[in-house]
């Protein structure tokens, strides 16, 4: 949604919220349903392993807990970036945005590792219903994080080169909304998929 950034800066309309932020909120509302659909699919199919591995055979809970914690930390750094942007401190904004992006990339790197490991343990994309729905759900989340990382890097470049029209903090906050949303979704996914035993 980086393209939203530019549209009309930070005017505040009838609701008191700027257009871009209201737009992002609406988009996130829509995303809830997207993940809702994917999570429902997973919940319906999670016990259907066929001849393939079961969730508990492949899951590495300690590792995933760590990577979830890393993603949570990135929410914290995102908050720092937003507060730096509000104080018009470009240097800190860039710094915290970069750290957030790096933590996000670490998380995605962890997911790539996880997928590769699962594949080697016999959980291919079409092995079973559990496999298909697991990969699609977590994969979609991974794609969302990746898009977020690219948005963050773009934001870094734009802040450094003063390419943001209108209010910088408003824009950083909007990207922040997206990032927090992705984090929250992960908490739900982590709880439902990894922590509740099948």
């Amino acid at each position: 949604m980086a393209e939203l950034v530019q549209e009309h800066g930070a005017q505040h309309g009838s609701t008191g919220i700027s257009n871009i932020k209201l737009g992002m909120w609406l988009f996130l509302g829509s995303e809830c349903l997207l993940f809702g659909g994917l999570i429902s699919t997973y919940m319906l199919y999670r016990g259907r392993v066929g001849e393939g591995p079961t969730p508990m055979q492949v899951f590495d809970i300690p590792f995933t807990s760590v990577s979830s914690f890393v993603l949570l930390m990135s929410s914290l750094t995102m908050v720092l970036a937003v507060s730096a942007a509000a104080k018009a401190d470009d240097r800190s904004t860039v710094l915290w945005l970069t750290v957030t992006a790096l933590l996000g990339a670490t998380f995605v790197g962890g997911q790539v590792y996880e997928f590769t490991a699962f594949y080697n343990e016999g959980l291919g994309f079409s092995t079973s219903l559990f496999a298909s729905s697991f990969y699609v759900l977590t994969g979609f989340h991974g794609v969302h994080v990746t898009v977020g990382i690219i948005m963050l890097f773009a934001l870094v470049a734009m802040v450094r080169r003063n390419r943001i029209p209108g209010s910088k903090s408003e824009t950083v906050e909007m990207i922040g909304l997206y990032w927090h949303f992705v984090d929250i979704v992960w908490i739900v996914i982590f709880t439902l998929i990894y922590l509740i035993p099948v």
């Binding site: 997207l34 994309f125 298909s132 699609v136």
Partner: peptide, 22 residues
């Protein structure tokens, strides 16, 4: 409503083109 059909269409697409089993 759109995200729900998006999910359904993704499942169908993965089923048809990538061998998913939904």
């Amino acid at each position: 409503a759109m995200p729900v059909i998006t999910v359904a269409l993704f499942l169908l697409m993965f089923q048809r083109n990538f061998g998913a089993t939904f």
